[in-house]
Design a protein around this nucleic acid. Structure first.
Length: 265
DNA sequence: ATATCTGCCTGCTCGC
DNA sequence: TGCGAGCAGGCAGATA
């Protein structure tokens, strides 16, 4: 499940592969992946910039068009020439002058938007954890009086952009905060710990080229390495690396949360 | 305004 | 061996 580090890795690959190249042709194998606009309209355009907004990938073209992509659970971009053979579940192909970009998505929850007016597909984008604005003061304002669990607050993309289920659990463990605490109940010391933990976890995950759990793979088909450094995610019943207590799993908002009941008590 | 619930999707794992 | 149930979960949209 691509979260900020995985999306960041894909952005870096895309910059290496498709910048300043003209689109020769497109092939939409599954039409509903194109959520808005017509992919054919990008033929002949040159991609001039690729960047990330939360978990969205944003593409600037050399005209009025903008393209956006969200990978959701199982989406990814692959550079065909880097692969030994063509993968399954390819939903969209974009042929460039120097090769072909594949959009692969097993569960087809992801999507691509072509915006003629440049308008992004998201409603409200929260602060990016690597932005200077991501301070403990800002986090404190976001959480103030909020009654939702802090784990759920971390997943709210209109507050903080880029965290998903894996890194939310990991950050709370690193900050020694119980995931069930209400967001509004955290004091400034806890908020500062959490803010620092989020940045540290995401930085380490990017260094390890992301977490591969089931589906995620890098542009060349290789796997990320951060799954080897996870402390709690998917480790129910295993012993906490810090204190030896069994890791527990709870369900919050229909999603699994993993934590150490002693360290995060 | 905030909080909660549902539907979207496919592949894998588990129990019978 | 086959098969259905349960699960993985990000997000939009609906509802409370």
């Amino acid at each position: 499940m691509p979260e900020l580090p995985e999306v960041e890795m894909i952005c870096r690959m895309l910059r290496e592969r498709i910048l300043n190249q003209k689109v020769i042709s497109v092939n939409v194998l599954l039409p509903r992946i194109i959520r808005e606009g017509d992919l054919n309209t990008i033929v002949g355009s040159v991609f001039t910039r690729v960047y990330r907004q939360g978990k969205f990938i944003c593409f600037d073209l050399d005209n009025e068009l903008k393209m956006y992509a969200h990978l959701r659970m199982t989406g990814t971009f692959l550079w065909q020439d880097d692969l030994p053979k063509k993968p399954s579940h390819v939903r969209v192909e974009i042929e460039f002058e120097k090769g072909t970009l594949l959009y692969r998505d097993i569960r087809t929850l992801g999507g691509i938007w072509i915006a003629e007016n440049g308008k992004p597909p998201w409603k409200k984008m929260g602060v990016d954890p690597f932005d200077d604005e991501f301070t403990s003061e800002r986090l404190s304002e976001m959480f103030d009086k909020r009654k939702i669990a802090v784990k759920q607050a971390l997943l709210d993309q209109s507050l903080i952009a880029g965290l998903g289920n894996i890194y939310s659990s990991e950050a709370l463990f690193k900050a020694n905060i119980h995931p069930g605490r209400t967001a509004g109940s955290l004091d400034i010391n806890e908020i500062t710990r959490l803010r620092d933990a989020i940045k540290e976890i995401l930085t380490a995950a990017i260094e390890a080229k992301g977490t591969t759990f089931r589906d995620f793979q890098l542009s060349d088909g290789k796997e990320g390495g951060f799954q080897d450094f996870l402390s709690v995610y998917r480790k129910e019943g295993l012993l906490c690396s810090r204190c030896g207590t069994q890791i527990e799993r709870i369900v919050q908002a229909q999603r699994s949360t993993y934590f150490c009941p002693k360290c995060q008590g």
